[in-house]
Protein backbone atom coordinates (compact mmCIF):
# COMPACT_ATOMS: atom_id res chain seq x y z
CA UNK A 1 0.00 0.00 0.00
CA UNK A 2 1.33 3.46 -0.91
CA UNK A 3 2.32 5.57 2.05
CA UNK A 4 -0.05 8.41 2.89
CA UNK A 5 1.21 11.97 2.97
CA UNK A 6 -0.44 12.64 6.34
CA UNK A 7 -1.07 10.50 9.41
CA UNK A 8 -3.39 11.57 12.21
CA UNK A 9 -3.23 9.79 15.56
CA UNK A 10 -6.51 9.99 17.48
CA UNK A 11 -6.83 8.79 21.07
CA UNK A 12 -10.14 7.59 22.42
CA UNK A 13 -11.48 6.64 25.81
CA UNK A 14 -15.19 6.02 26.35
CA UNK A 15 -16.24 8.19 23.41
CA UNK A 16 -18.88 6.05 21.72
CA UNK A 17 -20.92 9.13 20.75
CA UNK A 18 -18.03 11.41 19.84
CA UNK A 19 -15.38 9.22 18.22
CA UNK A 20 -17.30 8.24 15.05
CA UNK A 21 -17.96 11.93 14.41
CA UNK A 22 -14.31 12.80 14.96
CA UNK A 23 -13.14 10.11 12.57
CA UNK A 24 -15.73 11.18 10.00
CA UNK A 25 -14.37 14.73 10.28
CA UNK A 26 -10.95 13.47 9.18
CA UNK A 27 -12.26 11.49 6.21
CA UNK A 28 -11.88 12.37 2.50
CA UNK A 29 -15.54 13.25 2.07
CA UNK A 30 -15.30 15.87 4.79
CA UNK A 31 -11.80 17.30 4.47
CA UNK A 32 -11.16 19.63 1.54
CA UNK A 33 -8.38 18.73 -0.87
CA UNK A 34 -7.91 15.37 0.76
CA UNK A 35 -8.60 12.58 -1.71
CA UNK A 36 -8.59 8.94 -0.58
CA UNK A 37 -5.10 7.78 0.29
CA UNK A 38 -3.70 11.19 1.15
CA UNK A 39 -4.31 10.77 4.88
CA UNK A 40 -4.48 7.82 7.23
CA UNK A 41 -6.25 7.97 10.58
CA UNK A 42 -4.81 5.87 13.38
CA UNK A 43 -7.21 5.47 16.28
CA UNK A 44 -5.74 4.10 19.49
CA UNK A 45 -8.31 3.24 22.10
CA UNK A 46 -7.03 3.77 25.60
CA UNK A 47 -9.06 1.37 27.68
CA UNK A 48 -12.68 2.17 26.84
CA UNK A 49 -15.20 0.10 28.79
CA UNK A 50 -16.74 -0.79 25.44
CA UNK A 51 -14.05 -0.86 22.78
CA UNK A 52 -14.84 0.93 19.52
CA UNK A 53 -15.19 -1.30 16.49
CA UNK A 54 -13.78 -0.72 13.04
CA UNK A 55 -17.24 -0.81 11.44
CA UNK A 56 -18.45 1.98 13.75
CA UNK A 57 -15.74 4.27 12.38
CA UNK A 58 -15.85 3.46 8.68
CA UNK A 59 -16.25 6.37 6.28
CA UNK A 60 -16.07 6.38 2.46
CA UNK A 61 -12.50 6.50 1.18
CA UNK A 62 -11.00 6.63 4.66
CA UNK A 63 -7.75 4.83 5.43
CA UNK A 64 -8.32 3.84 9.04
CA UNK A 65 -6.57 1.57 11.48
CA UNK A 66 -7.88 0.85 14.95
CA UNK A 67 -5.64 -0.27 17.79
CA UNK A 68 -6.04 -0.95 21.46
CA UNK A 69 -3.51 0.19 24.04
CA UNK A 70 -2.47 -2.73 26.23
CA UNK A 71 -2.58 -2.05 30.00
CA UNK A 72 -4.29 1.26 29.43
CA UNK A 73 -4.01 3.72 32.29
CA UNK A 74 -5.56 7.13 32.93
CA UNK A 75 -2.94 8.88 30.80
CA UNK A 76 -3.14 8.64 27.00
CA UNK A 77 0.61 9.14 26.56
CA UNK A 78 1.48 5.49 25.92
CA UNK A 79 -1.40 5.24 23.46
CA UNK A 80 -0.16 8.33 21.62
CA UNK A 81 3.33 6.93 21.37
CA UNK A 82 1.93 3.64 20.06
CA UNK A 83 0.04 5.61 17.42
CA UNK A 84 3.15 7.60 16.50
CA UNK A 85 5.12 4.39 16.06
CA UNK A 86 2.53 3.22 13.51
CA UNK A 87 2.33 6.45 11.53
CA UNK A 88 3.51 6.21 7.92
CA UNK A 89 2.91 9.76 6.70
CA UNK A 90 5.68 12.32 6.33
CA UNK A 91 3.48 14.76 8.28
CA UNK A 92 1.94 13.46 11.50
CA UNK A 93 -0.74 15.02 13.66
CA UNK A 94 -1.74 14.02 17.17
CA UNK A 95 -5.21 14.58 18.59
CA UNK A 96 -4.75 13.76 22.26
CA UNK A 97 -8.50 13.97 22.77
CA UNK A 98 -10.55 12.00 20.25
CA UNK A 99 -13.71 13.89 21.09
CA UNK A 100 -12.77 16.83 18.88
CA UNK A 101 -14.24 17.44 15.44
CA UNK A 102 -11.81 18.72 12.85
CA UNK A 103 -12.50 21.80 10.79
CA UNK A 104 -12.83 20.81 7.12
CA UNK A 105 -9.71 22.69 6.08
CA UNK A 106 -7.50 21.35 8.86
CA UNK A 107 -5.48 18.76 6.96
CA UNK A 108 -4.99 20.77 3.78
CA UNK A 109 -3.89 23.85 5.72
CA UNK A 110 -1.39 21.88 7.82
CA UNK A 111 0.01 20.16 4.74
CA UNK A 112 0.47 23.47 2.93
CA UNK A 113 1.99 25.20 5.94
CA UNK A 114 4.38 22.30 6.53
CA UNK A 115 5.96 22.92 3.14
CA UNK A 116 7.00 26.42 4.15
CA UNK A 117 9.61 25.44 6.72
CA UNK A 118 11.99 22.48 7.07
CA UNK A 119 11.16 21.90 10.75
CA UNK A 120 7.66 23.19 11.33
CA UNK A 121 5.67 22.84 14.55
CA UNK A 122 2.08 23.32 13.42
CA UNK A 123 -0.35 24.36 16.13
CA UNK A 124 -4.06 24.55 15.41
CA UNK A 125 -6.87 26.36 17.19
CA UNK A 126 -8.74 24.81 20.12
CA UNK A 127 -12.50 25.33 20.18
CA UNK A 128 -15.28 24.17 22.46
CA UNK A 129 -18.67 23.56 20.88
CA UNK A 130 -21.28 25.75 22.52
CA UNK A 131 -21.59 29.32 23.75
CA UNK A 132 -18.61 29.27 26.16
CA UNK A 133 -15.79 27.10 27.42
CA UNK A 134 -17.61 23.91 28.29
CA UNK A 135 -16.57 23.83 31.93
CA UNK A 136 -18.54 27.08 32.18
CA UNK A 137 -21.42 26.41 29.76
CA UNK A 138 -22.14 23.12 31.55
CA UNK A 139 -22.99 25.12 34.64
CA UNK A 140 -25.68 26.91 32.61
CA UNK A 141 -27.21 23.69 31.36
CA UNK A 142 -25.19 23.00 28.21
CA UNK A 143 -25.40 19.27 27.59
CA UNK A 144 -25.06 16.69 24.84
CA UNK A 145 -28.66 17.21 23.71
CA UNK A 146 -28.02 20.92 23.23
CA UNK A 147 -24.77 20.11 21.45
CA UNK A 148 -26.61 17.76 19.09
CA UNK A 149 -29.17 20.51 18.46
CA UNK A 150 -26.39 22.98 17.64
CA UNK A 151 -24.75 20.57 15.22
CA UNK A 152 -28.11 19.94 13.55
CA UNK A 153 -28.66 23.70 13.28
CA UNK A 154 -25.69 23.98 10.90
CA UNK A 155 -26.57 20.71 9.18
CA UNK A 156 -23.32 19.10 10.31
CA UNK A 157 -21.47 17.34 8.70
CA UNK A 158 -22.61 18.99 5.45
CA UNK A 159 -22.39 22.37 7.15
CA UNK A 160 -19.02 21.73 8.74
CA UNK A 161 -17.65 24.99 7.38
CA UNK A 162 -20.01 26.74 9.82
CA UNK A 163 -18.67 25.01 12.95
CA UNK A 164 -17.16 28.22 14.24
CA UNK A 165 -20.64 29.78 14.36
CA UNK A 166 -21.62 27.35 17.13
CA UNK A 167 -18.34 27.24 19.02
CA UNK A 168 -16.06 29.23 21.30
CA UNK A 169 -12.35 29.72 20.77
CA UNK A 170 -10.37 28.65 23.80
CA UNK A 171 -7.15 30.49 24.45
CA UNK A 172 -4.87 30.74 27.43
CA UNK A 173 -4.06 34.40 26.96
CA UNK A 174 -6.47 35.63 24.32
CA UNK A 175 -6.40 35.13 20.57
CA UNK A 176 -3.28 37.23 20.18
CA UNK A 177 -1.66 35.92 23.32
CA UNK A 178 0.99 33.25 23.68
CA UNK A 179 -0.08 29.65 23.14
CA UNK A 180 -0.24 27.03 25.84
CA UNK A 181 -1.10 23.92 23.84
CA UNK A 182 -2.77 22.67 20.71
CA UNK A 183 -5.13 19.75 20.62
CA UNK A 184 -4.22 18.91 17.04
CA UNK A 185 -0.45 19.28 16.80
CA UNK A 186 1.28 18.45 13.51
CA UNK A 187 4.98 17.93 12.84
CA UNK A 188 7.11 16.01 10.37
CA UNK A 189 7.43 12.39 11.39
CA UNK A 190 11.21 12.79 11.67
CA UNK A 191 10.73 15.55 14.23
CA UNK A 192 8.34 13.44 16.29
CA UNK A 193 10.98 10.69 16.23
CA UNK A 194 13.75 13.09 17.20
CA UNK A 195 11.71 14.35 20.16
CA UNK A 196 10.84 10.83 21.30
CA UNK A 197 7.10 11.44 21.19
CA UNK A 198 5.20 12.34 24.33
CA UNK A 199 6.90 12.07 27.73
CA UNK A 200 5.81 8.83 29.38
CA UNK A 201 6.33 10.33 32.83
CA UNK A 202 3.01 12.14 32.50
CA UNK A 203 0.71 9.60 34.05
CA UNK A 204 -2.10 11.89 35.22
CA UNK A 205 -5.67 11.73 33.88
CA UNK A 206 -5.92 12.92 30.31
CA UNK A 207 -2.14 13.09 30.12
CA UNK A 208 -1.97 16.04 32.50
CA UNK A 209 0.52 18.52 31.12
CA UNK A 210 1.94 16.15 28.49
CA UNK A 211 0.44 18.12 25.63
CA UNK A 212 1.81 21.39 26.99
CA UNK A 213 5.22 19.79 27.49
CA UNK A 214 5.16 18.42 23.94
CA UNK A 215 4.60 21.84 22.42
CA UNK A 216 7.32 23.37 24.60
CA UNK A 217 9.87 20.71 23.70
CA UNK A 218 9.02 20.95 20.03
CA UNK A 219 9.39 24.71 19.99
CA UNK A 220 12.65 24.51 21.95
CA UNK A 221 14.25 21.99 19.60
CA UNK A 222 17.01 23.44 17.40
CA UNK A 223 15.84 24.98 14.18
CA UNK A 224 12.11 24.46 14.68
CA UNK A 225 9.51 27.08 13.84
CA UNK A 226 6.14 27.44 15.55
CA UNK A 227 3.46 28.03 12.93
CA UNK A 228 -0.07 28.75 14.11
CA UNK A 229 -2.75 27.74 11.65
CA UNK A 230 -5.33 30.53 11.50
CA UNK A 231 -8.96 29.51 11.92
CA UNK A 232 -8.36 25.79 11.46
CA UNK A 233 -8.61 23.55 14.45
CA UNK A 234 -10.64 21.09 16.45
CA UNK A 235 -13.98 21.43 18.23
CA UNK A 236 -14.46 19.75 21.57
CA UNK A 237 -17.61 17.71 22.01
CA UNK A 238 -19.01 17.31 25.49
CA UNK A 239 -17.95 13.93 26.85
CA UNK A 240 -16.88 14.24 30.47
CA UNK A 241 -13.18 14.71 29.78
CA UNK A 242 -10.50 15.16 32.41
CA UNK A 243 -10.33 18.95 32.23
CA UNK A 244 -12.56 20.52 29.58
CA UNK A 245 -15.69 19.01 31.12
CA UNK A 246 -14.81 19.23 34.79
CA UNK A 247 -16.86 22.17 36.08
CA UNK A 248 -16.79 21.33 39.77
CA UNK A 249 -13.44 19.61 39.89
CA UNK A 250 -11.64 21.65 37.32
CA UNK A 251 -9.57 23.62 39.81
CA UNK A 252 -8.46 20.51 41.64
CA UNK A 253 -7.67 18.76 38.34
CA UNK A 254 -5.77 21.83 37.16
CA UNK A 255 -3.82 22.02 40.39
CA UNK A 256 -2.79 18.36 40.13
CA UNK A 257 -1.82 18.86 36.49
CA UNK A 258 0.31 21.82 37.45
CA UNK A 259 2.00 19.93 40.28
CA UNK A 260 2.80 16.98 38.03
CA UNK A 261 4.16 19.26 35.33
CA UNK A 262 6.42 21.03 37.82
CA UNK A 263 7.57 17.76 39.33
CA UNK A 264 8.55 16.37 35.92
CA UNK A 265 9.94 19.41 34.15
CA UNK A 266 11.15 21.52 37.08
CA UNK A 267 9.29 24.51 35.60
CA UNK A 268 5.85 26.00 36.16
CA UNK A 269 3.45 25.76 33.25
CA UNK A 270 4.01 28.70 30.96
CA UNK A 271 2.72 29.50 27.49
CA UNK A 272 5.11 29.69 24.56
CA UNK A 273 6.41 33.25 24.58
CA UNK A 274 7.46 33.21 20.96
CA UNK A 275 4.16 33.44 19.14
CA UNK A 276 5.73 32.21 15.96
CA UNK A 277 4.32 32.67 12.50
CA UNK A 278 0.70 32.64 11.44
CA UNK A 279 -0.36 30.64 8.39
CA UNK A 280 -3.42 31.97 6.61
CA UNK A 281 -4.99 29.37 4.38
CA UNK A 282 -6.63 31.99 2.18
CA UNK A 283 -3.35 33.51 1.03
CA UNK A 284 -1.24 30.44 1.65
CA UNK A 285 1.35 32.69 3.27
CA UNK A 286 3.05 33.05 6.61
CA UNK A 287 3.04 36.28 8.49
CA UNK A 288 4.83 37.39 11.61
CA UNK A 289 2.58 37.85 14.60
CA UNK A 290 2.61 41.30 16.14
CA UNK A 291 1.62 42.62 19.55
CA UNK A 292 2.53 41.62 23.06
CA UNK A 293 4.20 38.34 23.78
Amino acid sequence: MAEPEISVVVISHDMARELPRTVLSLSPGYQVDCPPGRCEVIVVDNGSAVSPQQEDLAAPGLTLSLHHQPQAGPSPVAAINLGLSLARGALVGVCIDGARLASPGLLAACARAARLHPRPVLATVNYHLGPAEQYLSMLDGYDQAEEDRLLASIDWPRGAARLREIATEVWHGGRDGPMLESNALFMPRALWDELGGYDARFVGPGGGGANIDMLHRACAAPGTQLIRIADEGTFHQLHGGALSNAPNRGMEAGKRLSAEYYRITGRPIRPIKDRGLLFEAGSGKLRQESGHG
Binding site: H172, M251, E252, G254, K255, R256, L257, S258, A259, E260, Y261, Y262, R263, P268, I269
Partner: peptide, 25 residues
Protein backbone atom coordinates in the same frame (compact mmCIF):
# COMPACT_ATOMS: atom_id res chain seq x y z
CA UNK B 1 -7.64 32.21 37.59
CA UNK B 2 -5.65 29.72 35.50
CA UNK B 3 -2.38 31.19 36.78
CA UNK B 4 -3.65 30.97 40.35
CA UNK B 5 -4.45 27.28 39.89
CA UNK B 6 -1.04 26.66 38.33
CA UNK B 7 0.71 28.50 41.18
CA UNK B 8 -1.19 26.45 43.76
CA UNK B 9 0.05 23.19 42.22
CA UNK B 10 3.63 24.43 42.12
CA UNK B 11 3.39 25.60 45.74
CA UNK B 12 2.33 22.13 46.80
CA UNK B 13 5.35 20.61 45.12
CA UNK B 14 7.71 23.28 46.40
CA UNK B 15 6.64 23.22 50.05
CA UNK B 16 5.22 19.71 50.45
CA UNK B 17 1.80 20.69 51.74
CA UNK B 18 -1.64 20.30 50.23
CA UNK B 19 -3.85 23.27 49.54
CA UNK B 20 -7.55 23.25 48.74
CA UNK B 21 -7.55 24.36 45.10
CA UNK B 22 -10.30 26.90 45.82
CA UNK B 23 -8.52 28.50 48.78
CA UNK B 24 -6.67 31.14 46.72
CA UNK B 25 -10.03 32.19 45.31
Amino acid sequence: SAEVVIMTGVMEEEFGFEIDAELPF
